[in-house]
Computed example of a mutant assay.
Amino acid sequence: MKSKSLSFFISDSITVFWGDWLDLRVRIWQVVASGLVSPLIYILAFGLGLGSSIKPGVTSGSSNYLEFILPGMVALSSMVISFGGTTFSICGERLFTKTFEEMLLLPINPLSLHIGKMLAGIVRGLLTSAAVIVVAVLFTGKIFSFLNPLFLLVVILNCAVFSGLGVIVGLTVKSLESVGLYNNFVIIPMSFLGATFFDPAQLPIALKTIVYLLPLTYTAIALRAAAYLPLSEFPWYSIPVLLVIAIALSFWGAYKFAHQQD
């Protein structure tokens, strides 16, 4: 009986995801291009422009500042697109096309609704991350630094965290202007404070405490370690931290779906 329930749960989640994928697949290049602009600007401005005058983090394993920020750019791009794409997708269905109400009437577990939407956000994030990884490989020539299983696992977890957050914000906001507030007060500050441009190990204790409250910090340091450091020095604590956050957001999202009044 449990296996049958699990089978229905998985099939319902995939069904919800497939509805988003049918819309997403015709805009793949648009999604990739929109998420690649900011990382490319940061790479050119900070990595190449200021890179020669900035020393990389002492614990990062990178030989120059360009190499140092490239994993951070992967983390940054996956965060922005996973969050923004998921939020605007749900807002569009709720506020404009008005198709969201029909989905709420379906006999589907609220957690399956959240997982399906989150999977679509993960795919969006991975598409953009793949483009940034290609850029990173072209700049460094280190193919297996960015294409190893541990690196990809962390990217997927990061996409899960921020697409899960995007689902919750998409269900909460009343207008697109409200999305801008979340972006300005959550995503943009985290982009600069989440260890993407600096090594948090060098910060004072007070600032380090704040930085380590941000999930992007764990992604950035884990990606940097997966790319450049030996396996024995990988911060394994980052994986359960990201996983726990993603699971907590999933149950919160399921609760929001179960009580949504659209």
Rank of each mutant, 00 (worst) to 15 (best):
Ser11Leu: 04
Ser11Ala: 10
Ser13Ala: 13
Thr15Phe: 11
Thr15Leu: 15
Phe17Asn: 13
Phe17Arg: 00
Phe17Glu: 03
Asp23Tyr: 07
Leu24Ser: 02
Trp29Arg: 12
Trp29Val: 01
Ala33Ser: 06
Leu36Tyr: 15
Leu40Asn: 09
Leu44Asp: 01
Leu44Glu: 03
Gly47Thr: 10
Gly49Asn: 04
Ser52Cys: 07
Lys55Gln: 15
Pro56Gln: 10
Thr59Arg: 12
Ser60Asp: 13
Ser62Gln: 10
Pro71Cys: 09
Ile81Lys: 00
Ser82Phe: 03
Phe83His: 11
Gly84Ser: 07
Phe88Ile: 10
Arg94Gln: 13
Leu95Cys: 03
Phe100Tyr: 08
Glu101Pro: 12
Leu106Thr: 14
Leu106Asn: 11
His114Gln: 07
Met118Val: 04
Ala120Met: 09
Thr128Arg: 00
Ala130Tyr: 11
Ala130Pro: 05
Ile133Leu: 09
Gly141Tyr: 01
Ile143Asp: 03
Ser145Thr: 08
Leu150Ser: 14
Leu150Cys: 12
Phe151Gly: 04
Leu153Ser: 08
Val154Met: 02
Ile156Pro: 02
Leu165Cys: 01
Ile168Lys: 05
Val169Met: 12
Val173Glu: 08
Val179Leu: 13
Gly180Ala: 05
Asn183Val: 15
Asn183Tyr: 12
Ile187Tyr: 01
Ile187Pro: 11
Ile188Ala: 02
Gly194Ile: 03
Thr196Met: 08
Leu203Phe: 13
Thr209Tyr: 10
Val211Ile: 05
Tyr212Asp: 00
Pro215Trp: 01
Ile221Asp: 04
Ala227Ser: 10
Leu229Arg: 08
Pro230Phe: 09
Leu231Ile: 14
Leu231Pro: 02
Pro235Val: 14
Trp236Ser: 06
Trp236Met: 09
Trp236Tyr: 15
Ile239Trp: 00
Val241Trp: 04
Ile247Leu: 15
Gly253Asp: 04
Phe257Glu: 04
